[in-house]
Computed example of a mutant assay.
Amino acid sequence: MFESCHSPHEIAHLLRRRFGLPVQLLAGRPMITTGSVIGALVMPPYLGGEVLGALDPELQAPVVADPGNRTWTFLVTPPSLGKPVDTAVRSQLAAHQVTVVPGGRFVLLPTTDSTLGWHWAAEPAPGTLRLPPRTAVIEAIHRVIALHAPTS
């Protein structure tokens, strides 16, 4: 996808045009800022892969993987009316290495197709940006966690 890009400006333009992402450049890096347009959830890739499989196929999330695939960042809709995630839910998610990214934080975007750099673990659909609701992804995380919970 990035083979025709020769600069960060070209990458940012491609991400805006192809996916409708509100890309900014900061220090030559394409990124988005979480807030009123986009939210984010960060988790380990082993959990992220299962969460992608647990999501309704119509709600597939764009997912950014860091170099080396240590974390996956799900791009989601921001909370409605600024409603924060309940503290107990945040604690349960944190116990599984899931972070709800607060507003005003930067999320780096892919710049390469190689796993040696920031890349898509799940590429967004071309066209108008469609993100799953944050609540739907959190519910999928809970379903996946419940599948692995020890039974008594």
Rank of each mutant, 00 (worst) to 15 (best):
M1N: 06
E3M: 04
C5W: 01
S7L: 03
S7C: 03
I11S: 09
I11L: 11
A12W: 02
A12T: 00
A12L: 06
A12V: 00
A12K: 01
L14I: 09
L15F: 05
R17I: 14
R17P: 03
R17K: 15
R18S: 10
L25P: 08
A27Q: 14
M31R: 12
T33D: 06
I38W: 04
I38L: 14
I38Q: 03
A40L: 08
A40I: 02
A40G: 04
V42H: 07
V42N: 10
V42T: 12
V42C: 11
M43N: 05
P45W: 00
P45R: 05
P45Y: 05
P45T: 07
P45N: 03
L47I: 11
L47F: 05
E50P: 00
L52Y: 03
L52F: 07
G53C: 13
G53S: 13
D56T: 06
D56A: 11
L59Y: 00
Q60E: 04
Q60V: 14
A61E: 05
A61T: 01
P62K: 02
V63H: 02
V63S: 01
A65I: 04
P67D: 01
P67C: 01
L75F: 02
P78V: 09
P79V: 10
S80D: 14
G82F: 10
K83Y: 07
P84W: 05
V85C: 06
V85E: 08
T87P: 15
A88M: 15
V89S: 06
L93P: 05
A94D: 15
A95L: 04
A95I: 02
A95P: 00
V98Q: 05
T99C: 08
V100K: 08
V101G: 00
G104D: 03
R105L: 01
R105P: 02
F106P: 01
F106L: 14
V107N: 03
L108E: 13
P110Y: 06
P110L: 12
T112D: 13
S114P: 08
W118M: 09
W118E: 02
H119A: 06
W120S: 01
A121D: 13
A121P: 02
A122H: 08
E123V: 01
P124F: 11
P126E: 13
G127W: 03
T128D: 13
L129G: 03
L129F: 09
R130G: 02
R130E: 15
T135H: 07
V137S: 06
A140N: 04
R143V: 14
R143E: 15
V144R: 07
V144M: 07
A146S: 15
H148N: 11
P150A: 15
T151L: 15
